[in-house]
């Protein structure tokens, strides 16, 4: 049985479709860069305005969980990159397993993150709702935590979307006995790496300012 036409009528070949999909993903990432970019710009404006407050607030973050999460996320990106490199009709089961590993690591990241949020809530560090900071009159401490929650919250949202996307990809390549999902896998991987890169920036901005020697 010949495979049904695998690409929409606006394309002339499967390869044509793949090139369009890849370009679309890169353009989407450009949009995302500007989305996080605006937030990070706001962060720098206030860090410049309140260096002491940002340093004091940053020293209250949980460096251990932050570092562990960085390692977890980088490892997950490695698994995804490996899956992309190894992908072929013969290795698709193995690649699905690699994606499952990445998903597991992503979930581990979110679990650790939620522990971190919980301890911050207990320490009265949630701006607007329950914020007590000692010394009381350090300007900018609350703003730091506001950016912390908005940025890491938005990042966590991206993680959840990424986990869902990787899940769909794992199911698809497990089920389809060919390498036709190569581009979709590549796009999903691009997204995952992008979310990873955002975290590397956030790690430096959130955990390090108050800890310089």
């Amino acid at each position: 049985m010949p495979e049904t036409r695998a690409f929409a009528p606006q394309f002339v070949s499967g390869r044509h479709r793949d090139e369009a999909a890849a370009l679309g993903m890169w353009v989407f990432i450009a949009t995302e860069v500007l989305l996080f970019g605006a937030l990070i710009l706001g962060y720098f404006v206030y860090r410049h305005l309140h260096p002491a407050g940002f340093a004091a607030a940053s020293s209250r973050t949980d460096l251990v969980i932050g570092t562990a999460n960085t390692a977890i996320l980088l490892t997950s990106s490695f698994a995804v990159a490996w899956a992309v490199e190894a992908f072929s009709a013969e290795t698709r089961k193995f690649c699905a397993t690699l994606l499952a590993c990445a998903i597991g690591l992503g979930i581990a990241f979110l679990v650790l993150k939620s522990f971190e949020y919980r301890s911050e809530y207990r320490e009265h560090l949630v701006p607007g709702i329950d914020f007590k900071f000692d010394p009381v009159h350090v300007d900018g401490a609350q703003l730091f935590f506001l950016f912390y929650f908005v940025a890491t919250g938005l990042h966590a949202l991206h993680m959840m979307i990424g986990i869902a996307v990787l899940g769909v990809m794992a199911l698809l390549i497990n089920r389809t006995p060919s390498a036709r999902h190569r581009t979709a896998l590549h796009s999903a991987a691009l997204y995952w790496h992008f979310v990873d890169v955002v975290w590397i920036f956030l790690f430096a901005l959130v955990y390090l300012p108050g800890r310089a020697a």
């Binding site: 353009v27 450009a30 949009t31 995302e32 500007l34 989305l35 996080f36 970019g37 605006a38 937030l39 706001g42 701006p127 607007g128 709702i129 609350q142 703003l143 506001l146 908005v150």
Partner: peptide, 25 residues
Amino acid sequence: LVLATPVLAMTLVLIAVERLLGVGI
């Protein structure tokens, strides 16, 4: 459209956060 709109999106998110939490951004 692709490069400018996300900046507006983030700005609007921050306004909503400021209104909901009462923290001065």
